[in-house]
Design a protein around this nucleic acid. Structure first.
Lengths: 122, 122
DNA sequence: CTAAAACCTGACGTTGACGTCAGAGGCAAG
DNA sequence: CTTGCCTCTGACGTCAACGTCAGGTTTTAG
């Protein structure tokens, strides 16, 4: 599978895939001519990377965690495991914050709706 | 209230407050010498701004919505109202994504715990 | 065999929310 | 009036995840 195919299947840009490799998030086998070739399983890997980015993790953090995800072995360091727990908790906190923000918006929307429905005629 | 006091009370930097003013998110009255003076209610305003930033809104988006929040009037344009609904829905979607990501991490954590607890002895 | 399409490696550009530094001025206390 | 802290206006720096362009090579369709 070539880089353009992987990009299409994972819904990211070719540039992004090269950047992931540069950051150590993704590896590739090279063709005799030097072009990157990927396996089918890399689609899922890229989707996971995207998911983690979207959750606010940095490249550095992701590269620390990925060994855990690929080969759940005892060698996956305690630090990586602990880091994963930390990130999980951070996400939980972020979700709570977003819920509060949404509630605030809901209250503002309600207040505006009141004024819109003519309870305060102009 | 001076800018340093507001910064301390709202938990942001002085630089951030000047930036908010530059972006049209915050206004101030000037002292005879040209220094910014704020009212107590500006603390809440800054906290709201911070909350919206943290929810992924840009300065531009926030400045569009803030008129709605300060004076819920009929003049608050339909566009601002609609925009607010959009952002609310975007946040809801984002929350759902974060929950999915957290679930993924939970599964990975469970897998690793299995290997850690000696079910696969080394 | 050829031309188009895809890929390669640099390397500089972008964006947003500030950080930081320089040089100068305002302000309450003693 | 001066000491010291706070504040002012520029204006350049930062950082991350790519976008984009240049100039050249590989792969594939016909």
């Amino acid at each position: 599978m070539r880089i353009g195919d992987l990009a299409a299947r994972a819904g990211v840009s070719v540039r992004a895939l090269r950047y992931y490799e540069e950051q150590g998030l993704l590896t590739s086998v090279r063709s005799p001519g030097g072009q990157r070739r990927y396996a089918d399983r890399d689609v899922a890997r890229v989707l996971l990377i995207q998911r983690l980015y979207q959750a606010g993790l940095s490249s550095r953090t992701i590269v620390d965690l990925l060994p855990c995800t690929e080969t759940p072995s005892h060698e996956a360091s305690d630090l990586a495991f602990e880091r994963m727990r930390q990130e999980r908790d951070r996400i939980t906190g972020h979700i709570a914050e977003l819920v509060r923000t949404r509630d605030a918006l809901d209250r503002l929307l309600a207040a505006n709706r009141t004024h819109r429905e003519g309870l305060v005629p102009g």
